[in-house]
Design a protein around this nucleic acid. Structure first.
Lengths: 146, 146
DNA sequence: CCTTGACCTGGAGCGCGCTCCAGGTCCTAA
DNA sequence: TTAGGACCTGGAGCGCGCTCCAGGTCAAGG
């Protein structure tokens, strides 16, 4: 994504690391530990830039990608699959059909899961209705049906 | 739930254990190991009946309860909370308000989680849309915008 | 110069929810 | 009488996704 140094003299601000890991954590809602973990596990597109102090410097592009990762994770995609997806992106444009397939399969699983959860939730809400009914009838009048 | 031997001579078929653990597993979609685990962890209302062979015999009431447990678990309620809920049910009718509260809090968390998942899914579907568009434009015509 | 604090690395630890295993008991059918 | 199969118990092991820690480096401020 975005090959710098192809056109202008200024190398594209988006790919230049400016955010500390604490910033990145705040921006993405992850912990610094999780960010390091994601990098170790190959979920990022490249290793994050370093300052001379060897501190990580996240670019805006990095943050954008990490936000996408949190969305995948937030819909239950396992780390392993995120890694695969990242590998495809890294491998170049010709993997776009494969990426599409991966995302669509994920979406289908999520939709199935959503339906299933809603179904289960309905049963629970039914139960709630029963308890509520009993609370309404039992509390004010006392000694009805028992 | 349901005190047998209060009225008739036949002790209420629902509370009489008839299903083997393999049956129960088939009926509930859990593994035999998971069923034993749930019992150990106090998710069931009482210890399951045993045959003379010390094999477990699940009653229909047991199965009904376990099905409810799978619905709670299927909406993401942690084992620990299911245990609390079971303890409330065990403790008697006077805990109904507490059970109601527990279930309503759970439902709210689930609804929040559903909304969040849908939000994340939307972003992913947007991404899918982009890939699809590119696939449609790129494949048939060849050499457009590149 | 010394402290402070943000961050680094490698690796261990943890909470969760099962899952698997060894070694044993019991019942049934051949 | 013996073999097979279903199940038992106690306890270890596992996959996941972080989280925590010790010991160290580096840059800035007092």
């Amino acid at each position: 994504m975005a090959t710098a140094t192809t056109a202008g003299v200024t190398p594209d601000p988006g790919t230049l690391g400016t955010h500390s890991i604490a910033d990145a954590a705040r921006e993405t809602g992850l912990s610094p530990d999780a960010l390091r973990y994601y990098e170790r596990e190959g979920l990022l597109l490249q290793p994050v830039d370093r300052a001379s102090s060897s501190h990580r410097r996240y670019s805006d592009v990095d943050l954008g990608w990490i936000r996408l990762v949190t969305k995948l994770r937030g819909t239950g995609m396992p780390i392993r699959s995120v890694r695969e997806y990242a590998a495809l992106v890294r491998a170049g444009e010709h993997t776009e059909p494969a990426r599409l397939e991966l995302l669509e399969e994920h979406r289908d699983r999520v939709l199935t899961q959503l339906r299933e959860t809603r179904r289960n939730l309905e049963a629970i809400e039914h139960k709630i209705g029963i308890y509520r009914e009993r609370a309404d009838c039992g509390a004010p009048e006392r000694s009805v049906t028992r």
